[in-house]
Write a protein that binds this DNA or RNA. Structure first.
Lengths: 241, 241
DNA sequence: CTCGCATAGTCTTGTATAAGACACAAGACG
DNA sequence: CGTCTTGTGTCTTATACAAGACTATGCGAG
């Protein structure tokens, strides 16, 4: 006699709850049912449910607050910043970037983009070029590439102001895209003339090149981001445990 | 009526077990007592003990194997490599480095070293200069700085061969130093003449500069390591979750 | 008799349940 | 402005059974 699903029950429950969040059944910021209620509905014990919830919390999909309830994590720009933005100044303090959009376009994915985003070559992607400004100085030049299928309408009238970062957050919330994980490849490169112009630095200045691929809670690749960081006054901080 | 220790019981138990490992009470690779026995000895329920053990396992301090027992993690060079070594080749595959020691010395800590290692300026440190070779080519030039107080005798007759990495692992195991966490600051820099000589690259080549501080299970700073990685054929892979 | 091997026994950690005491938050009420 | 009540998540205990891993036993083949 073999079970239909060999995974532990708490993993199955985790998957069920994950689906409900991804599918928009429970929306961003919304409170989940109380634990006893939810456990009863799912037909599992409170302990098993709590174990599943603990795993979801570890993945930052939900937030639990004693006495208040359990909530689907709201993806504000501050939240995403704290979780994924690793630039620090030389004193080790987090830095608050301003954003300046320098260009937006839509077109077929290049071979490189398609491979990274797991698309077929030629599928439509949106591209956003922007610079990020720390303490008045431009320090990052980056290009964000998004699968158009996941962000319909993003190509439309887009204010060249810094709104774009907010729009981006809005799209994630509205489309059930909950960012969960990023994989990054880091290397060093020399500033090209284009980089030098954007970053206001001499040609050839060593830059930290960050190639990031981001995944959502459904396991989809949602973004490719290539950033060039001028590290003369900043560092990229990573913790390994 | 306030409790003497407001932390949850499972956290207190975790701290007790952590101490036993750090103090060498339970040695590297050794099996812990079985759960029921240990729970009885500590006067807590099996569930509470298991919760503490789960936390220790997450920190890689112990390893649990169903049917066999629970063991203090043994710090082999392979284990440390898998956990802390993030260099990949362009295909994304982990790379197996050879190591070549280029110099060993002992002396008073510089201001910079003292600050990073949390020592008083002038306290004795060991310094190991070495290069790391991937697929026949030298790709990393690095200096490791260790507090002499934690590694007594390391200054003595040291084979210039690649033994040093093994010796280093041995010292950690022998002195209750269990590496648990690293903090890294990444930036880009241009190869100096010294770098160029070691790495066999042109002067000015952009290098990935990695400044790493490593902590052990007792919360001590155990190592400062400054590495310069030639990223022409390799990447530094990081995952953010 | 000895070797090989299946298997039962027993020790280990892993999973799932249940129940009760506790702590925190928010609103109702005096 | 306190105090109470209610609803929430958190901690701790206890029990039972499942599953992995090793050991010993014993039986049969040679």
């Amino acid at each position: 006699m073999r079970r239909p699903d060999a995974r532990p029950l708490y993993v199955q429950v985790e998957a069920i709850l994950n689906d409900r969040i991804v599918s928009g059944d429970w929306k961003s910021g919304q409170a989940l049912p109380a634990e006893p209620e939810l456990a009863a509905e799912l037909g599992v014990s409170a302990g098993t449910l709590r174990r599943a919830l603990a795993r979801l919390e570890q993945r930052h999909l939900i937030e639990r607050r004693q006495g208040r309830g359990t909530y689907v994590t709201q993806q504000t720009s501050e939240q995403a910043l704290g979780q994924f933005f690793r630039v620090r100044n030389l004193a080790g303090r987090p830095v608050e970037p301003d954003t300046f959009i320098t260009g937006v376009s839509t077109g077929p994915a290049s071979e490189e983009e398609a491979a990274r985003l797991r698309l077929r070559q030629g599928e439509a992607v949106h591209r956003i070029d922007r610079s990020r400004i720390f303490e008045g100085e431009p320090r990052i030049a980056e290009r964000i590439t998004l699968p158009a299928a996941l962000f319909p309408g993003l190509s439309l009238p887009l204010a060249p102001a810094q709104l774009a970062s907010e729009i981006y957050v809005h799209y994630r919330n509205a489309h059930g895209i909950i960012v969960v994980k990023s994989e990054e490849n880091l290397s060093a490169t020399a500033a090209t003339e284009a980089d030098a112009a954007v970053l206001n630095c001499p040609v050839g200045t060593p830059l930290l090149l960050i190639e990031r691929v981001t995944f959502d809670a459904a396991g989809r690749v949602v973004e490719l981001r290539v950033s060039r960081l001028d590290t003369r006054a900043h560092r990229y901080a990573v913790e390994i445990a």
